[in-house]
Design a binder for these strands. Structure first.
Length: 812
RNA sequence: GCGAACGUGGCGGAACUGGCAGACGCGCAGGACUUAGGAUCCUGUCCCGUAAGGGGUGCGGGUUCGACUCCCGCCGUUCGCACCA
């Protein structure tokens, strides 16, 4: 028991001993009670108004939850609790993205086996997530490293394999010499490894498993613009459009001089074809050998050797100086009929388009640079007015019109056709690592590639003491011979397992489907459960996953839908990207040493205060700057609310509630409801503070208002709200209460202030009855001294009257 | 280069479809209560000016009775993509 607030002791008769707000005790009490009474566990089968509130699950790093995680989880939890109070059956699950390179690299660094390390980390995360007071349904926790989970990750691979959506291909891949594995394009940042910012990614040629995500480009793109399918943060949708990279143009076939073959190129500017003065092939282009003349052969070969010695990275970034070599061969420009030389240069990439271009140096910077370097001819074919020049029958037409005409002409003459290109490549899912689900495939000398039969799943990740990756391009799993050799499922002969594991993004591509169905061990996701709960109602997460996780998850949903496993083809109806928490204006990172660990703040101030503080930093979708100075504000607020509740409990309310307070009360309810819906938590909290200030100013402790305040505070400070609710005599969790409603008639005062402007400048205000007509307001304004002073000796030429807001007098 | 978001006091940030710029909070200043104050409570706090008044939302124009908000042109910041033809 603490002491009573001193300032009131003298004024009032002794009240029953009043506890001081002690967050630690309050939070422990309610966390225990929520668990014991299953408050956060909706009945997934009988829920009348299902609402799936999903947040991006964390990967359990050894450092534990950092402030960025806390911010994201709290913001999502606030929304979930809000929806719950609005009467929805909110399912808010949590889990752990525990497989993957990030976890494994850390294990290597500290020299502990991931199988040992990860469970420890998860235990820490669980403790922290409970401590923050999330409304998690722990019955449905998921961990991707659990065989009961990854059995189904492997099952999904098999479904894709059987449907022809997974295939194995030899190709140039990104290889991180530090991770010693292949990376997806999405994991290469400016030529450096996402996980090792100092390590350049190399090019290697390996056989890898791919998923045919490129088959779904049009759907992936189309749905982004379909509000019925998805309502997403624009920044996220834009990032996906960018990544998919759709370009419209034409494929044009150039006849090769002196041989019976054609060279196809893709261009977005077929209208400039009359300016194509040379061709460029990627060094790996299959036609290189046949177009090269004998006298150029040596030069070409040495150039190709030099280019392949360069890794994929240097070709893609940095070294922009154009180099190349003439092949000695020529092609015919189908528009001009001229013979144009064919060059090889590494600025042309084999992976995009046809691996060859028609170079139009007059209208393309790169081609111009190349032409200048090697003294090739430059022909301008577009003038300043955007009209074609020296372009035969098309001369004089605007370029945009000519573009269509030329495509038509190409089609008629059989030398080309309109075409759409995408930047997106198929998804490489192979990883030469240990810490992931083994790809469920077996190679048999007699039967070839044999998928592991579904009844044999999961293919368990074998224990391996030395799990370190090596430079061989083969996963460490190959070293465990007992596991590696296996009877072929189809002929029984000795066969070999696929030793690569799958990309972590395959794990996270479907976890939302598992949450509602965790208790089923004979199916990945139960049909009825999935129908009831999916697609996800609201998904909140970081924009760093805009083109990775979010794109892959969409693709997998489309495939599973096509295969009849899902009724929907978009997994997340509404997605909102949260902002980033920075520290002193800089992104938090270990290398900067400015990572804030939430635990000590929670210990000192309480989880509720910390939650409120994080949510008040700025708009949730914009993030904010973490500065611990401000944290006392929310705590003072809670202390004051506590005092108000205390007063409500110990003293009867006297007299009527003033009309201004009634109006403030109803306005606040309306405002907060709208603000939370739009994730503007910072202004919702400000509105609560304003209401409290009003109550204190007029010495009001009206129970109805305080109860509404607590309900509106509950999403932000759930333990605190529970405790106060109980102190007010309620015996059931506040989360069974319903969200306050407001009376439209009470949103406005009867007497309002109307601004008086003279020539658009505010000079005064007058008090009039609400909905007063213009004459009344004008009379009041004219009677006002300050206004009169500015009207002296002038005539009113014009009046603008905005009812209930302002009157503007324009004088000459 | 392409795409997205943004620029407001000492600081974080408010301002709905154009209508009192600076809500709310932090900090700061003064006061009260105190043995004490890093607790609590009052008062003040955009800038210049004693005041009347004037100026003010990155910069320059424009539209309007009226612009943080809309339009045009710059400058700057952050994020994503990028030898993608």
């Amino acid at each position: 028991m603490g002491t009573k607030p001193r300032d009131r002791a003298s004024k009032r008769p002794p009240a029953p001993a009043a506890a001081v707000y002690d967050p630690e005790a309050v939070e422990a009490k309610w966390q225990a009670r929520w668990a014991a009474e299953h408050v956060n566990e909706p009945d997934l089968d009988r829920a009348a108004r299902p609402f799936y509130n999903l947040m991006m699950y964390p990967y359990p790093s050894a450092e534990g939850l950092h402030v960025g995680n806390m911010f994201a989880f709290t913001g999502s939890d606030v929304y979930g609790r809000f929806k719950r109070l609005q009467g929805f059956d909110v399912f808010e699950p949590i889990g752990f993205d525990a497989f993957g390179i990030h976890s494994e690299n850390y294990a290597i660094k500290v020299g502990t086996h991931p199988a040992q390390l990860i469970p420890q980390n998860i235990a820490t995360f669980r403790r922290q997530l409970r401590r923050m007071g999330g409304m998690f349904d722990w019955r449905h926790e998921v961990s991707t490293t659990d065989p009961a989970y990854y059995k189904w990750t492997q099952w999904i691979f098999l479904q894709l394999y059987k449907a022809g959506k997974a295939y194995k291909k030899l190709g140039a891949v990104n290889w991180c010499p530090e991770c010693k594995t292949v990376l997806a394009n999405e994991q290469v940042i400016d030529g450096y490894c996402e996980r090792h910012p100092d390590v350049r990614v190399e090019q290697r040629t390996l056989e890898q498993w791919y998923f045919r995500i490129t088959e779904y480009v049009e759907q992936l793109l189309g749905h982004l613009d379909d509000p019925a399918k998805m309502d997403w943060s624009e920044s996220t949708a834009a990032a996906q459009r960018n990544w998919i990279g759709r370009s419209e143009g034409a494929e044009i076939r150039f006849r090769l001089v002196g041989r019976d073959d054609v060279l196809a190129v893709f261009t977005t500017r077929p209208d400039t074809i009359f300016g194509a003065t040379f061709m460029v092939l990627a060094p790996e282009h299959p036609l290189v050998a046949s177009v090269t003349s004998d006298d150029q052969r040596q030069a070409v070969q040495s150039y190709i050797r030099a280019a392949s010695a360069k890794d994929i990275v240097s070709r893609r970034v940095g070294e922009r100086d154009k180099t190349g070599v003439f092949t000695g061969g020529y092609a015919v420009n189908p528009a001009t009929g001229a013979d144009i030389p064919i060059w090889i240069a590494d600025y042309v990439l084999m992976e995009y388009g046809t691996g060859a271009i028609m170079a139009v140096p007059a209208h393309d910077e790169r081609d111009l640079e190349f032409a200048e370097t090697y003294d090739l001819s430059v022909v301008r074919v577009i003038d300043e007015n955007d009209r074609l020049l020296a372009s035969g029958q098309f001369t004089g037409r605007p370029a945009s019109v000519a573009l269509r005409d030329i495509i038509q002409w190409l089609e008629q003459s059989g030398t080309g056709h309109g075409q759409v290109q995408y930047r997106l490549y198929d998804w490489c899912i192979s990883r030469q690592r240990y810490w992931g689900p083994p790809i469920p495939v077996i190679y048999c000398d007699a039967c070839g590639t044999v998928p592991v039969p579904e009844e044999d799943l999961p293919v368990l990740l074998p224990p391996l003491e030395d799990f370190r990756p090596d430079d061989s391009g083969t996963s460490p799993l190959a070293r465990n011979e007992e596991w590696f050799f296996v009877p072929c499922p189809s002929c029984g002969q000795r066969a070999r397992r696929e030793t690569d594991v799958s990309d972590t993004f395959l794990d996270s591509g479907w976890y939302y489907l598992r949450y509602p169905s965790t208790e089923f061990d004979d199916r990945p996701f139960d049909r009825t459960r999935t129908q009831k709960w999916c697609p996800v109602t609201t998904y909140i997460g970081g924009n760093e996953h805009a083109v990775l996780h979010l794109l892959y998850a969409r693709f997998l949903a489309m495939v599973l839908h096509e295969l009849g496993h899902l009724d929907f083809d978009e997994p997340f109806l509404k997605f909102r990207a949260h902002g980033l928490i920075v520290k002193d204006g800089a992104k938090m990172s270990k290398s900067r040493g400015n990572v804030v660990i939430p635990d000590e703040y929670i210990a000192r101030w309480g989880a509720d205060t910390f939650r409120m503080y994080l949510m008040s930093l700025g708009p949730f979708q914009e993030g904010g700057d973490f500065r611990d100075a401000g944290i006392s504000g929310p705590r003072r607020f809670l202390d004051k609310v506590w005092g108000l509740v205390e007063r409500c409990v110990t003293e009867d309310a006297v007299g009527e509630v003033k009309h201004t307070v009634m109006v403030k009360w109803h306005q606040t309810k309306q405002k907060i409801t709208g603000d939370i819906e739009e994730l503007k938590y910072n202004t919702a909290i400000a509105a609560l503070m304003e209401l409290l200030n009003t109550m204190r100013e007029v010495q009001c402790h009206e129970r109805r208002i305080i109860e509404d305040m607590l309900v509106m505070l509950a999403p932000f400070a759930p333990h605190f709200a529970e405790e106060c609710w109980e102190r007010l005599g309620h015996d059931r969790s506040i989360f069974f209460a319903s969200w306050p409603t407001w009376d439209a008639a009470l949103l406005v005062e009867d007497n309002i202030e109307v601004v008086v402007q003279v020539n658009g400048r505010t000079r005064s205000t007058v008090r009039v009855r609400r909905e007063a007509d213009e004459g009344v307001v004008l009379a009041a304004a004219m009677a006002d001294d300050k206004t009169a002073r500015h009207l002296e000796g002038k005539t009113i030429r014009k009046r603008i009257y905005v009812p209930n807001r302002l009157i503007n007098l324009v004088v000459g």
